Amino acid sequence: MSMKRILLTLSFVLLTSLLFAQVKKVKITDLETYIQKSDHPLMISFWATWCVPCVEEIPWFQEGVAKFADQKVELILVSLDFARDYPYKLETFIKKKNWQASFYWLDETNADYFCPRIHPKWEGGIPATLFVNNKTGYRRFFDRALTDRQVEPEIKTMLKEVKVNGR
């Protein structure tokens, strides 16, 4: 292969990676481990491209996280889109929306297995959001859409509460 062709190929790969959001494939056990070992507050949204309330609330999540950037709140968007949509459709959709977060696609199909691992009462409906702050013991789960007025107060509560589990 000529040097020119190698450079063109590398340029294409780099440009493609910049144009598309990187969505990593993840198993529920990997996500659980990340949550358990996190040393910073997490806001984890389970969503899909075809879920209108999911897509509607994500900009509010981004605004809320941006307000608390100094406290290192991380927004994690876990897609429950169909396997046929990973990665191209999902990455294209995220890029079009210009979202900033950590992006994952949950490589699981059995909701009876993965839902209770996030919260015992989660029956699989989306949107669903989990707030976790291991430093304070805070963990709160919502199995419904949040409004723009609920996001910031919930982040504030996550950052200040101590030992409020299982709400």
Score class of each variant (00 low, 15 high):
78 V>L: 08
74 E>H: 14
55 V>I: 15
142 F>S: 06
119 H>C: 06
85 D>F: 06
57 E>S: 10
84 R>W: 15
138 Y>V: 02
93 F>A: 06
78 V>R: 00
116 P>S: 09
101 A>C: 15
81 D>T: 05
115 C>Y: 12
141 F>R: 04
95 K>H: 07
143 D>N: 15
132 V>S: 11
135 K>Y: 05
83 A>M: 10
111 A>C: 00
67 K>Q: 13
126 I>Y: 02
146 L>P: 13
114 F>W: 15
124 G>M: 00
57 E>Y: 13
145 A>H: 06
70 D>E: 09
121 K>F: 14
121 K>D: 13
98 N>H: 12
138 Y>W: 02
134 N>V: 12
118 I>P: 00
122 W>V: 08
73 V>R: 04
88 Y>Q: 10
139 R>H: 10
87 P>C: 07
86 Y>A: 06
117 R>S: 13
86 Y>Q: 13
81 D>R: 14
122 W>Y: 04
110 N>M: 06
123 E>G: 14
130 L>T: 09
69 A>N: 03
135 K>L: 10
118 I>G: 07
95 K>C: 00
88 Y>N: 08
138 Y>N: 02
69 A>C: 01
57 E>C: 11
60 W>I: 03
130 L>D: 06
73 V>C: 02
119 H>M: 05
126 I>L: 05
110 N>C: 02
112 D>T: 11
95 K>V: 00
99 W>M: 13
137 G>R: 03
115 C>G: 09
57 E>V: 09
61 F>C: 03
125 G>R: 09
92 T>Y: 09
55 V>E: 03
87 P>K: 13
122 W>C: 08
114 F>I: 04
110 N>L: 08
127 P>F: 05
109 T>M: 12
91 E>Y: 04
62 Q>K: 11
92 T>K: 08
125 G>Q: 12
113 Y>N: 08
100 Q>I: 13
144 R>A: 15
112 D>Y: 12
91 E>C: 01
73 V>N: 07
82 F>S: 14
124 G>N: 05
108 E>L: 06
136 T>Y: 02
128 A>D: 04
71 Q>I: 00
102 S>R: 15
102 S>Y: 07
61 F>M: 08
89 K>L: 00
60 W>K: 10
102 S>D: 14
58 I>Y: 05
111 A>I: 02
139 R>C: 02
77 L>H: 08
